[in-house]
Protein backbone atom coordinates (compact mmCIF):
# COMPACT_ATOMS: atom_id res chain seq x y z
CA UNK A 1 0.00 0.00 0.00
CA UNK A 2 1.35 3.42 -0.97
CA UNK A 3 0.62 6.18 1.47
CA UNK A 4 -0.19 9.74 0.51
CA UNK A 5 1.22 12.58 2.57
CA UNK A 6 -2.11 14.36 2.49
CA UNK A 7 -4.18 11.46 3.76
CA UNK A 8 -4.58 10.63 7.39
CA UNK A 9 -4.15 7.10 8.65
CA UNK A 10 -5.51 5.33 11.71
CA UNK A 11 -2.62 4.46 14.03
CA UNK A 12 -4.26 3.28 17.25
CA UNK A 13 -7.40 3.30 19.32
CA UNK A 14 -7.94 6.33 21.54
CA UNK A 15 -8.14 3.99 24.53
CA UNK A 16 -4.58 2.79 23.86
CA UNK A 17 -3.25 6.31 24.27
CA UNK A 18 -4.12 7.30 27.81
CA UNK A 19 -2.86 10.59 29.20
CA UNK A 20 0.90 10.98 29.70
CA UNK A 21 1.83 8.08 27.47
CA UNK A 22 3.48 7.79 24.09
CA UNK A 23 4.02 4.96 21.63
CA UNK A 24 5.76 4.22 18.35
CA UNK A 25 3.66 3.55 15.27
CA UNK A 26 4.70 3.15 11.64
CA UNK A 27 3.28 4.49 8.38
CA UNK A 28 5.04 3.49 5.16
CA UNK A 29 8.27 2.61 7.01
CA UNK A 30 8.27 5.98 8.79
CA UNK A 31 8.41 5.54 12.54
CA UNK A 32 6.19 8.04 14.33
CA UNK A 33 5.96 8.91 18.00
CA UNK A 34 2.35 9.53 18.91
CA UNK A 35 1.29 10.45 22.41
CA UNK A 36 -0.97 12.33 24.73
CA UNK A 37 0.35 14.83 27.23
CA UNK A 38 -1.91 16.72 29.64
CA UNK A 39 -4.87 15.62 27.53
CA UNK A 40 -3.45 16.94 24.28
CA UNK A 41 -2.38 14.72 21.37
CA UNK A 42 0.93 15.06 19.56
CA UNK A 43 2.74 13.23 16.76
CA UNK A 44 6.31 13.61 15.57
CA UNK A 45 9.06 11.65 13.88
CA UNK A 46 10.34 8.99 16.29
CA UNK A 47 13.93 9.66 15.28
CA UNK A 48 15.77 12.10 17.54
CA UNK A 49 16.97 15.05 15.41
CA UNK A 50 20.28 14.97 17.25
CA UNK A 51 21.66 11.46 16.60
CA UNK A 52 18.69 9.41 15.45
CA UNK A 53 17.78 7.51 18.62
CA UNK A 54 14.21 6.27 19.12
CA UNK A 55 12.34 8.90 21.09
CA UNK A 56 9.78 6.29 22.13
CA UNK A 57 12.41 5.00 24.57
CA UNK A 58 12.50 8.38 26.27
CA UNK A 59 10.29 9.97 28.90
CA UNK A 60 8.39 13.19 29.53
CA UNK A 61 9.65 16.27 31.29
CA UNK A 62 6.81 18.75 31.23
CA UNK A 63 5.76 19.16 27.59
CA UNK A 64 9.15 17.85 26.48
CA UNK A 65 10.22 14.40 25.39
CA UNK A 66 13.64 13.51 26.79
CA UNK A 67 15.82 11.45 24.46
CA UNK A 68 17.29 8.48 26.29
CA UNK A 69 20.51 8.62 24.27
CA UNK A 70 21.97 12.03 25.15
CA UNK A 71 19.24 13.66 27.23
CA UNK A 72 18.20 16.33 24.72
CA UNK A 73 14.68 17.64 25.33
CA UNK A 74 12.21 18.67 22.62
CA UNK A 75 8.79 20.26 23.03
CA UNK A 76 6.34 17.73 21.61
CA UNK A 77 3.85 20.45 20.59
CA UNK A 78 6.18 23.03 19.03
CA UNK A 79 8.96 20.62 18.05
CA UNK A 80 11.60 23.00 19.38
CA UNK A 81 14.80 21.83 21.07
CA UNK A 82 14.47 23.30 24.57
CA UNK A 83 17.29 21.63 26.50
CA UNK A 84 20.63 20.75 24.96
CA UNK A 85 22.00 18.68 27.83
CA UNK A 86 25.70 18.91 28.50
CA UNK A 87 27.83 15.78 28.19
CA UNK A 88 29.84 16.83 31.22
CA UNK A 89 29.07 14.68 34.23
CA UNK A 90 31.87 16.27 36.23
CA UNK A 91 33.51 19.70 36.26
CA UNK A 92 36.78 18.18 35.09
CA UNK A 93 35.23 16.80 31.87
CA UNK A 94 35.79 18.74 28.66
CA UNK A 95 32.61 19.88 26.86
CA UNK A 96 31.82 18.48 23.41
CA UNK A 97 32.41 20.45 20.24
CA UNK A 98 29.39 22.49 19.10
CA UNK A 99 29.30 20.72 15.75
CA UNK A 100 28.69 17.46 17.55
CA UNK A 101 26.20 19.01 19.97
CA UNK A 102 23.98 20.85 17.52
CA UNK A 103 20.54 19.49 16.67
CA UNK A 104 17.55 20.40 14.55
CA UNK A 105 13.98 20.42 15.83
CA UNK A 106 11.42 17.63 15.83
CA UNK A 107 9.50 16.87 12.64
CA UNK A 108 5.86 17.25 13.66
CA UNK A 109 2.92 15.49 12.04
CA UNK A 110 -0.75 16.33 12.00
CA UNK A 111 -2.70 14.25 14.53
CA UNK A 112 -6.43 14.00 15.18
CA UNK A 113 -8.95 11.84 16.98
CA UNK A 114 -12.37 10.74 15.81
CA UNK A 115 -14.84 8.11 16.97
CA UNK A 116 -12.34 6.43 19.27
CA UNK A 117 -9.49 6.30 16.75
CA UNK A 118 -6.27 8.34 16.54
CA UNK A 119 -5.23 9.45 13.04
CA UNK A 120 -1.88 10.78 11.78
CA UNK A 121 -1.05 12.44 8.47
CA UNK A 122 2.52 12.54 7.17
CA UNK A 123 2.40 16.21 6.20
Amino acid sequence: MKYSKTDRYPVCKSSELVDDTMMKVSIDMVDILVGRRNGKLFACDNSCPHKGASLSKGCFNGDRVVCYMHGYEYNVFTGKLENMKSWKKEDTWVEQDMEWRKSGDLILYSVSEEDGTVYVALK
Binding site: V94, Q96, W100
Partner: peptide
Protein backbone atom coordinates in the same frame (compact mmCIF):
# COMPACT_ATOMS: atom_id res chain seq x y z
CA UNK B 1 33.46 12.70 13.66
CA UNK B 2 30.76 15.36 14.01
CA UNK B 3 28.00 12.96 12.99
CA UNK B 4 29.17 10.17 15.33
CA UNK B 5 26.46 8.76 17.55
CA UNK B 6 28.43 9.15 20.75
CA UNK B 7 30.38 12.00 22.37
CA UNK B 8 34.14 12.24 22.09
CA UNK B 9 35.74 10.45 25.04
CA UNK B 10 37.93 13.41 25.98
CA UNK B 11 40.71 13.07 28.52
CA UNK B 12 39.41 14.68 31.73
CA UNK B 13 41.39 17.53 33.29
Amino acid sequence: ADQAGCPDAYLPD
